[in-house]
Design a protein around this nucleic acid. Sequence first.
DNA 1: CTTGACCCTATAGTCAACTATAGGGTTTAG
DNA 2: CTAAACCCTATAGTTGACTATAGGGTCAAG
Lengths: 149, 149
Amino acid sequence: MKDGTRIGELARAAGSTVQTIRYYERLGLLPSPARSASGYRLYTREALERLRFIRQAQAARFRLEEIKEILRLRYAGRSPCDCVRKMLEQRLEEVERELADLARFRRVLRRVLNRSQQLPRLPHSASAICPLIETIPSTGRKAKGGKNK
Amino acid sequence: MKDGTRIGELARAAGSTVQTIRYYERLGLLPSPARSASGYRLYTREALERLRFIRQAQAARFRLEEIKEILRLRYAGRSPCDCVRKMLEQRLEEVERELADLARFRRVLRRVLNRSQQLPRLPHSASAICPLIETIPSTGRKAKGGKNK
DNA sequence: CTTGACCCTATAGTCAACTATAGGGTTTAG
DNA sequence: CTAAACCCTATAGTTGACTATAGGGTCAAG
């Protein structure tokens, strides 16, 4: 990709879409590019590098807000790596928690499914809505972000 | 909780909130309850059971739409357990996939963090935005539902 | 008879990361 | 010269499960 590219070609080069690029610009993840006489955005390969970086960082499960902060630090002349290391460490802790939760949930699911083969289609005892589900212990995790009040 | 309870007490009994209960009613997860002369909702303990069931099913990571379907089957007189067993099996498969993805991502994170201690704060080589992130292989999973185009 | 706790409806906002639509202007190939 | 393929802005919609707000009515205690 050479300098002066329009948004469509940048999108193709980056494996993104035109709308997404404009969206990132609105969010401040990409700087406002130069414009042609008729108002078209004209990009340099720096934009392509930024887009690739954003994808990398998303692969590391950073959110766009965090990526924006990393980019800001970088372009303020400081290496963001120290800050990023902290973020990565936090991400690792989160992942550990999610793994533990998921593994616990898997145990529950397996136990319930096993049990379901022992009571094959009992004709719903009056009180229960679904005995199969009701044997699930409520200690199970909720979807992430689920807060109880 | 006795019959004729108003929504606030039901919410307390179920560990939920007034808004959430009304929301479930709008979605069709709870039937329209009786009303007092002044228009207040009056609940029986069946509503409490339904709410508890919903929480159980959410703990099993069913979505509200699926829960609605289970409740519909149940109140159409058929035991939903067969259908539910299939759902639980699907859920188990999903969980297996998520676990594998997460474990893979954890390996990547650990490798990157290890490496980051070997190159302690190199003063950002001109081209890179953040060498730490850029060493992450882009094979990493994206957040669930992330589709590339 | 007023204060406060409760209840009602309807509508809009939250989060994240887009995606789509309406309603236009520009550029290039034939 | 026209039609396709591109570009622009601004705004609204998507998903899921809520949460909040506005603007009112009801009920029991003091």
